[in-house]
Design a protein around this nucleic acid. Structure first.
Lengths: 231, 231
DNA sequence: CGGCATCCGTGACGATACTG
DNA sequence: CAGTATCGTCACGGATGCCG
């Protein structure tokens, strides 16, 4: 194996790109930020990636301390990949990329794939300042997110590459978002259509405005749900 | 020409990577954040990039609205490349990448190239909260930066891809950093060695602490210089 | 069936040489 | 100085095969 390709520049950004600059790597991180995933699930939610490239990236990421491979407990024995703390600390990078890319996102093209939880990152920014477990229901599917669980605009975790026990997410809190319904009782449930979700994600439409306009149905008993309905 | 390779995912982060995910692209942005540069200068400060890849990237970036090519005024007629507002809005992305990469930067390897202005991005974060034109003198060379001139931790410029008149940098302020001495009279001049600069960049050592320890010599008459000497 | 490894065609990359 | 041309190599994407 040739000594992996590096920019060989004494610059922190260049070093970061040595680790996460390869094609697909950051998108794999985006998937794993939703929590531990199996190989096949990753392959399904990353349309276009070939099997060998996915396997190769997962190996590289494990060697670089971004991910770990774990065997699931007996019932349903399979391997799952999850982020280490170091890998989860890439959240601000994905947030910055997403914020920059939203301006150019435009309309959905016919060739574009969509997954419900891809809206989690932008919605997390739209919910900045709020706190609570939120479940979001779209036509494309359901996902959940933990608003206020992590320093979205922060610089990243201070500690190095320790493994997060119990789930690849943010230190102490588990994943900041996830596919499917919320694990416990959500503080608020948002039902909305894709266009509204897109507008809110882009910041074109405030979430409170969307609620007021009846484009978002808010259910749930948490303080967050009440505040959204009142505002 | 085949329709450029895209992830074809309706996700803002994936769209961003469609534009800036190719090898070298973000490092070219890092260079251009220092202001307009000529092709040869870019090639010199991006050791390892081949001439055709650099030319190809610059063409792609121009087509995507990240850069513009301009002919310099008569004395010294040459082409320069500069960032548009849209391109300069990638600053938060490079900041996030740099912050993440600093943890793993470690010691300089024998194969690593270094340029003085590569310290500008991390120092800009270390000077967060301060304001002023700062000139930094290292063994590797001299550069300058404008602390407080831009929302470092922000989400990026709101307007789209307009051209920045008079220099590729941040809207209204020109470049946030640049190679060589400051254009005008700097508010503060910092002289320090590479190790100290690295420690301050990484946040291991507060700038005020470094000054107190005599590892940074501060000259200049601006309020920033005085505050640094007093603190 | 999940989790890769192998093979193969195409395009991207990197180094060198060359030209307006 | 500012690239283009050429070429060998490697990475990527798609399909298929293997193995627990």
């Amino acid at each position: 194996m040739p000594p992996r390709r590096s920019y060989d520049q004494y610059c922190s950004a260049a070093r970061a790109l040595d680790s996460v600059g390869d094609r697909w790597t950051l998108l794999i991180v985006r998937e794993l930020l939703a929590g531990p995933r199996r190989y096949t699930d990753l392959h399904a939610d990353l349309p276009g990636v070939s099997t060998d490239v996915l396997a190769s990236r997962l190996r590289d990421m494990e060697r670089d301390g971004l991910t770990t491979r774990r065997r699931l407990p007996p019932p349903g024995a399979a391997h799952v990949y999850e982020l280490t703390a170091r890998g989860a600390a890439l959240l601000p990078v994905l947030q910055a990329l997403g914020a920059w890319g939203e301006e150019a996102l435009g309309e959905r093209r016919p060739t574009d794939a969509v997954r419900a939880h891809w809206f989690a990152l932008p919605l997390l920014r739209a919910l900045d300042g709020e706190t609570g477990l939120v479940e979001v229901r779209l036509d494309e599917g359901v996902f959940h997110l933990r608003a206020g669980a992590s320093p979205v605009h922060g610089v990243g975790s201070a500690d190095g590459g320790g493994l997060v026990q119990g789930g690849g997410g943010f230190p102490g809190d588990g994943p900041v978002y996830g596919d499917g319904p919320a694990d416990g009782e959500p503080d608020a449930v948002l039902s909305l259509d894709t266009d509204t979700c897109t507008a809110v994600s882009r910041g074109d439409l405030a979430l409170t405005e969307a609620v007021r306009a009846g484009r978002v149905v808010v259910t749930g008993d948490g303080p967050l749900a009440k505040r959204l309905r009142e505002a």
